[in-house]
């Protein structure tokens, strides 16, 4: 077919930022689908509660301690998370390196805390459906903590190699920060369900 040149795109940037990049949209789509998964699991929790004669079923409400500390840590982590996204945006590799180390630490702490959370539930996954859904909620969220931690660690290593100074990698840092916001955001309703709904 004959061609007629009507447009020159050579002036365009080589790496679109945020909503101009495909990875941003990819991250967005994954957040949408995982968010649906979380929403459904919470719906299951509320559904089982609506059927049960008593709630919590056959156990005292979970201890507030570890879960609340974890919540506090997650919320606190939003600040450096916000900063690292900004530094990446400004292409300030030095600060990004500092930030990614902080975020690695702030990724490890919740994973550790999570292992104190399970015993604080006072019920095992195989005791009854209440135990099952609690463990499932914590477990699903744990997998998100761990995968995001893994991603953060790999990025941290990358940042200290020659690949760090690259717009594309800095874009990855931003997407990772975006995803961490999501991990924190999904935790909050779960926290309310697990720790406060039984106390209502």
């Amino acid at each position: 077919m004959n061609e007629r040149i009507v447009l020159d795109v050579s002036h365009l940037t080589l790496h679109g930022k945020s909503s101009a990049s495909v990875t941003w949209w990819g991250t967005f789509a994954f957040m949408l689908l995982e968010g649906t998964g979380f929403a459904l699991l919470i719906a299951v929790y509320l559904y089982l509660e609506s059927l049960a004669s008593e709630w919590p079923l056959g156990a005292p409400p979970p201890d507030l301690g570890p879960g609340s500390v974890l919540t506090a840590v997650l919320i606190a982590s939003l600040v450096p998370n916000y900063l690292i996204a900004r530094w990446a945006e400004q292409e300030n590799l030095h600060k990004v390196r500092i930030g990614i180390v902080i975020m690695t630490v702030l990724g490890i702490v919740p994973v550790v805390l999570r292992f104190y959370e399970f015993p604080a539930l006072h019920i095992s996954w195989d005791s009854n459906a209440y135990g099952s859904i609690l463990w499932a909620l914590l477990g699903l969220h744990l997998t998100h903590l761990v995968t995001d931690l893994g991603d953060t660690v790999v990025l941290a290593i990358l940042m200290f190699t020659r690949h760090g100074a690259n717009k594309r990698r800095l874009g990855d840092i931003q997407d990772n920060a975006l995803y961490w916001n999501f991990v924190v955001a999904t935790w909050l309703p779960i926290y309310v369900c697990i720790y406060w709904v039984p106390r209502l």
Binding site: V44, L48, L51, W125, D126, S127, N128, A129, G131, S132
Partner: peptide, 18 residues
């Protein structure tokens, strides 16, 4: 799979499942 493999009770009416 969890019900079948590790004994959760999501679908077991005897233990609060449905």
């Amino acid at each position: 799979i969890l019900d079948r493999l590790i004994g959760t009770h999501f679908f077991n009416p005897a233990e609060g499942g449905d």
